[in-house]
Amino acid sequence: MLKLSDVHVFYGHVHALKGVNLTVEDGKIVSLLGGNGAGKSTTLKMISRLVQPKKGNYEIDGKSLMKDSPSQVVKKGIIHCPENRRVFPLLTVEENLMIGAYNRRDKHIKEDLQKVFTYFPRLKERIKQKAGTLSGGEQQMLAIGRSLMGKPKVLLLDEPSLGIAPILVKEIFEIVKQINKDGTSVLLVEQNAHMALSISDYSYVLENGHIALEGNSQELKDNDEVRRLYLGG
């Protein structure tokens, strides 16, 4: 279980997160909604320690992460799949996936590679291709596959639908659901609130750096305010 309590983040003088409380229960998909600049990506970046928290605490399975570096967070099983995919364009698909397993020393890396290929058979077809030559959707698949190679307990997924053909978006969300069924919790940041609410169990709505609303995704879908602000009436 990943738990954030009263987390504050500053960018210079800008108070970007103003005391965020949030919990990702084991085996759940939790979505984080909100407009531009509400602090969604900042929350994920704080968890993976690309930005530093100023105050508060956060922990996984009771172990605090406040003093950790990005690589220590990865070792504790929290892996951040960043916005805009950020695959390594000049490395092959296979090399990109192996980078995901960079911190692992166990013998199951090969098996997990095969598992990624069962989620994303397209990647197997393109295994020797440079990642920069893939389509946007394929790159997103590669980015998710790369994160899975680190064997995450919690996968932080930032805007997986950004700039991707609608038909692939559906496919990717189906696979995210499958990954979750196979035992990985997911914290999903997504502009497409409709999509996010329909695949997640629980949702938080961020406004101006604090949680304005939270609840079961099904209930939020019927909430008037959420409908008006994020689902287009």
Binding site: L50, V74, F88, L91, Y102
Partner: peptide, 23 residues
């Protein structure tokens, strides 16, 4: 090698490399 792969990755995208646990 693993180190070589990390060196190539770090040169292409430092942020993504950090996120994959590379120091």
């Amino acid at each position: 090698t693993r180190l070589g792969l990390a060196m190539r990755a770090a040169s292409q995208d430092t942020m993504a490399s950090e996120l994959m646990g590379i120091k």
